[in-house]
Design a protein around this nucleic acid. Sequence first.
DNA 1: ACATTTGTATGTTTTTTAACACATACTGCA
DNA 2: TGCAGTATGTGTTAAAAAACATACAAATGT
Lengths: 230, 230
Amino acid sequence: MNAECHNIIDNQMSVFSVLNKEEKEQLKKNSTCTYYKKGNIIYKEGDKPNGLICLSKGKVKIYKEGVGGREQIVRMAKPVGFIGYRALFAEQNYLASAEAIEDSVICTIEKDTLYKILRTNSELSFNIIRSLASELGFSNNRTVTLTQKHIRGRLAESLLFLKDTYGFEEDGSTIKVYLSREDIANLSNMTTSNAIRTLSTFASEKIIALDGRKIKVLDLNTLEKVSELG
Amino acid sequence: MNAECHNIIDNQMSVFSVLNKEEKEQLKKNSTCTYYKKGNIIYKEGDKPNGLICLSKGKVKIYKEGVGGREQIVRMAKPVGFIGYRALFAEQNYLASAEAIEDSVICTIEKDTLYKILRTNSELSFNIIRSLASELGFSNNRTVTLTQKHIRGRLAESLLFLKDTYGFEEDGSTIKVYLSREDIANLSNMTTSNAIRTLSTFASEKIIALDGRKIKVLDLNTLEKVSELG
DNA sequence: ACATTTGTATGTTTTTTAACACATACTGCA
DNA sequence: TGCAGTATGTGTTAAAAAACATACAAATGT
């Protein structure tokens, strides 16, 4: 399991690609792997980060509790990627919670080791700066679309977001993540009822096809139009 | 003017406080100062950043154009602080526009010089990472509050945000920034009519007092409660 | 296998907020 | 100084979405 767990450190696309062999070894030596079952909480709003959490396998939702306990999903993590790095680098406690929505494997890189390497490797710092800046752009964008788009537009956008994040199954049209209607609602800033209703409408309009939690995109073009124009 | 313009580089609270004298000199030599009148556009969504823009004097709003050209203010800048650093560090074009809401002085630090120093000074990188991570936390928070709070809560939050950002005048209660009702609306995700109406309601409830664009906070406690509970 | 909980679906009502219409006040400037 | 354009204020209407109420199906635990 440990070998698989360290995949983010060796991954050519990760921010760690700029490290040399020795630096990578050090990170691996100072990281621990944990297994989370579907539904397990990885961290809670208010917890203190004690390392850089990497998602090696599985899927995780990052969400905030809002007014009256209403949940808003702010991000969806996929392997190979980070969770909770914002709080770590801001030197704050977590402002959101993370929950595995599938059985997942995470690798926690010990903070001090990471910081030691950061101090000597400016390329790594650059990569992290770039990641955070991109994520911030995404977040600002989301703020606008979630507040301004109408229900149909928000739901369409969420479906496109899920498709872009997790891709399609082998059939080339089924979104590769199975969320509850409630999670889809919490991602799209609407009530569960409205998520269910609007999904049904999309299905009746042949934009998507529903089979339990499976969502098949039938008409990507129209879905994009709905996302754009409401 | 140039001396005043460079105040961010010397400021003890800025991310540059970790630089040595020589590094600071280099930054100063490779930066230019510009004056913007109230209402002037500093950059537009889609423009390419060519340096790190620092606000030395004045006030600036950063906003995105949303559905049907509707404007959403995502940030308000004050001296001494940065604008447009997100796009610069993400190596993207601007995703938002910046407009001076008061006569302003900005200092643009040339990109290559900044990057050269960044490459050798890991403390500076750290500071930038910390800033971006904090800003991202703020943005995620805003996403939730703007989508979940009701009109009164959103407006109250915006007033508190303005107060926290710009502080009070000498009288200890007048918010030190004069925005149009339309800007207040665009900050709070509501129509101008509703901003005007809700401000009036707050005034009639003696939570605030209005005198043109001057907003005096009469009952901070209640304002905070309204922001919290809607 | 059955009971209990949880998730999905759908109809109805109510609340919230945007859209619209219009009046008036202010502001820059020709 | 007067006039056009912009900003503010307020009432009315329409649309959107939440809240609520059920019903039923599926999953879960005992």
